[in-house]
Design a protein around this nucleic acid. Structure first.
Lengths: 229, 229
DNA sequence: TTGCTCCTCACGTCACGTGAGGTGGC
DNA sequence: TTGCTCCTCACGTCACGTGAGGTGGC
């Protein structure tokens, strides 16, 4: 495939891809397409897959190219299983803004008092959030980074007069979504093949991204109607 | 306030702010704090507000600094009403990835066939999405950019076997949220004062951002449990 | 021959971060 | 005097985009 054809294919999933970016990714050592006698780039299907991996890692995990390149090198050398998640990614960094911790949310460990201190919530507030089901301790007395994010968000809502009981609906909606996606990838996730399991992870990530966009667009539309803009 | 105090204040809403960035924003002409005799920056409350405006425009509207600076200059000169939305913003650009159009979603105008062509959906698909209530024509036969985004997302879901009927729950959840936020800002939005109306818009944007984060965190947590990571 | 795609290479840009070398404030 | 905050200025960096000047392919 020529560079133009690759562009057209990738544009489906990554609308802001450019020829200049494809050349740049080669210059940075992330792909090495063959060349024709005249010097034209010739991409194989594997090259295109590789580009898809790179672009998805940028888009969904906000990883810098250097990290992605090292990861690919390790996979090429057979040192890592492709399904292993890359460290250092934090899928929501650029989405929200309020207080995303530097660590992976799942790896953070906070005690109850630390959580209260870092969010400014009272003990009662936190207990309400737990009753409503939007926050849960991972193990008794210990909270993770997602709990921190949610607690911070809840504090933000509270500042506008939106209390814990209003957040129960979020939990319900999320549960329904998770159920839907789970049913879909369950066979893949249970497969003995590591490639299938990797695909399950990737599929779930894609579905999560789609879900974000849909949720965002519907809320924005609704609010625009209300504000008369 | 010293630069360090400003940093601490802004960190609440913008966790990745740095001293270096505050100095940079001054060098770029976005704020001009006073100086002490010794050359230390002294920020007024108005300076901090201004920084908040700049950072929110970057975070929520993805505007380049040049545009924000021009806007502020126009406001300073009394040429624009601060509540007027800045043109060129598109709040979800960096969130999802799949097919965000360059125009403002609300300003795009597409005919039914264009919408089908650009998303690859069939006429029946689109009718189903309309029945379910996630897409609606703005005026008979004309669709806007949000419809395009949602149609693209729906096509993505469909590729994974998730059809229109599964998306109704998204609509229900979004409606509930919009109702909640609307009730909250209704008095402000109806006020005669333009400042109050501007605050209503800003509040709604903040609530929308919080809602995105909460939704993202809850879905991610749920999926992580399922995938056993 | 025309129009289109593709090439390289140098330079530009945007939004910062880093680090050296130094001063102010309590 | 110590430790901390703050200062400037030059340079680095990351992820590209632009544009000049040219060649390949049907």
């Amino acid at each position: 495939m020529s560079i133009g054809e690759v562009l057209a294919r990738l544009r489906e999933d990554f609308p802001d891809i450019t020829i200049s970016k494809l050349r740049f990714l080669e210059a940075e050592g992330l792909v090495e397409p063959q060349r024709t006698a005249a010097g034209y780039r010739k991409y194989s299907a594997a090259d295109v897959d590789r580009l898809g991996f790179v672009l998805a890692a940028q888009r969904d995990r906000f990883l810098p190219l250097r990290v992605i390149r090292d990861r690919l090198a390790a996979i090429d050398a057979g040192e890592v299983d492709p399904s292993e998640p890359i460290d250092g990614g934090f899928a929501d960094d650029a989405v929200g803004g309020t207080e995303p911790p530097a660590e992976l949310p799942a790896d953070l460990r906070l005690r109850r008092e630390e959580l209260l201190e870092r969010t400014g919530l009272s003990d009662t507030d936190l207990r309400e959030l737990e009753n409503v089901g939007v926050i849960a301790a991972r193990s008794p007395g210990w909270y993770d980074g997602d709990a921190l994010i949610i607690a911070t968000v809840a504090a933000g809502f509270a500042a506008h007069g939106i209390g814990a009981r209003h957040l129960r609906a979020f939990r319900t909606a999320a549960d329904r979504e998770v159920g839907l996606y789970t049913a879909l990838v369950a066979p893949m996730a249970k497969s003995a093949s590591p490639t299938a399991r990797a695909r399950a992870v990737e599929t779930v990530r894609e579905l999560g991204a789609l879900s974000q966009q849909l949720h965002a667009a519907l809320v924005r539309m609704g609010l625009r109607d209300v504000l008369g803009q």
